[in-house]
Amino acid sequence: MKKMYTSILVKSKTIALFFWNIKVILNIIMKKQDILILYLSNSSLESNVIGWARHYGNKKKIGMPGDNDSPPYERGIEAIHDGWRLFQSSQLEQHAKGDEYRTGYLKYEFFFEKIK
């Protein structure tokens, strides 16, 4: 009888361990990406934040236009200090002849991510 109980206990532990491992693997596979987009006042990461957007991997959280009048960081580098990983920034492009004084889109765009 005791052997039978021990066997059931061992089997239960094995099954539990199996599902726990599945959960761990799923967590690793299903990790989600949060995105932070910053627009800076010049091409240096040290410069001031003039525009921003947040997007969340968790679909219960929504980043939307006009959701905050204060920037998340004063300067771009502060995002790095806070654990955001930079994965893209805009290039510096030569001004097209005849169009040197026309202004348009925000020039200094930086994309960051956090994997959670």
């Binding site: 525009g51 921003w52 957007a53 236009p65 009048d69 920037p71 348009g104």
Partner: peptide, 15 residues
């Protein structure tokens, strides 16, 4: 700023 309509929708917040 010469832009094309919703092309700037990526700019959620501007100081």
């Amino acid at each position: 700023r010469m832009v094309n309509e919703m092309a700037i929708a990526r700019y959620h917040n501007i100081r």
